[in-house]
């Protein structure tokens, strides 16, 4: 706990001061409330609407996020493994993975709506597109980062390519894989929200868009605050998993 305050103490103090200043500026009409709402108004909005916000909208966003993220991890790791074992697959697909990142996702999303309609799958597709890349690159670069000396050592013992992969490459890939995963988990949530902005009937992205149409800044910010908190929690959970998995790195 002490460490936590040592690391984040200054940031927390800064945020508290900034929120108090904002509250003052809005309450005293220096900034109009429809531009930036007072922090207390956002909290009141969340408290008054917590049932639909959490159960209906956050639930829908989380479902899209979870399906998209899991598919991206399974597909991304699968592709990274295939590219690692087959030069042909690598040469054929690696450029395509790179190019997929150059596409402006906002522009592509209406096409997903065209393909999948207003079902959950148009949102899942945006989520996958957002998070696939850091997972593939993290895992693939990780597999390839294996030190040649270690490979030689295992080969000298008569290890097969498969044994080298399971005993060496996978472990060696974890640090790079987790770096990708931490980016991907945050991107996934952003992806689900973007998907909802472009066409949905529930979810926090849809909620904030509807509130924005009503010029209800409290509502827009309420959705943003919830999404941010969820994003931080997901990131922290991934970082914890990373720490557990890579315990051997800590003593280095």
């Amino acid at each position: 706990m002490r460490n936590f305050f040592k690391t984040y103490g200054l940031f927390i103090v800064f945020m508290v001061v900034a929120l108090i200043a904002l509250e003052y500026l809005v309450q005293s009409d220096i900034i109009p409330a429809f531009i930036v709402p007072a922090p207390t108004d956002v909290v009141i909005h969340i408290i008054e609407n917590w049932r639909p916000l959490i159960f209906e909208h956050l639930g829908a966003t989380m479902l899209e996020f979870a399906i998209g993220f899991i598919l991206a991890v399974v597909g991304g790791v699968g592709l990274a493994v295939s590219m690692f074992f087959s030069k042909t697959i690598e040469k054929m697909l690696y450029p395509a993975v790179l190019i997929s990142q150059m596409i402006p996702i906002i522009a592509l999303s209406p096409i997903f709506v065209l393909w999948f309609g207003y079902t959950i799958w148009s949102k899942v597709a945006v989520t996958i597109l957002m998070s696939f890349f850091p997972i593939v690159v993290g895992a693939y670069d990780g597999f390839k980062s294996t030190d040649k000396d270690y490979i030689e050592l295992l080969r000298s013992m008569g290890a097969s390519k498969r044994q080298i992969f399971t005993k060496l490459n996978i472990q060696m890939a974890f640090p790079s894989f987790f770096s990708g995963l931490k980016i991907a988990i945050v991107y996934s949530l952003v992806g689900a929200t973007i998907g909802e902005w472009l066409g949905a009937s529930e979810g926090l992205g849809y909620y904030s868009r509807r509130m924005s149409g009503d010029l209800n800044a409290d509502g827009v910010f309420a959705a943003i605050v919830i999404l941010t908190i969820v994003g931080i929690i997901l990131f922290a959970l991934t970082a914890m998993l990373e720490k557990r998995t890579l315990r051997w790195k800590e003593t280095e």
């Binding site: 000396d149 270690y150 030689e152 050592l153 000298s156 013992m157 008569g158 472990q171 790195k249 280095e252």
Partner: peptide, 17 residues
């Protein structure tokens, strides 16, 4: 052939995990 002799390289190369 590979696996016929015991080999200890210059670095200890213990798997850190």
């Amino acid at each position: 052939s590979l696996g016929d002799v015991g080999y200890m390289p210059q670095k200890d190369l213990l798997l850190p995990w």
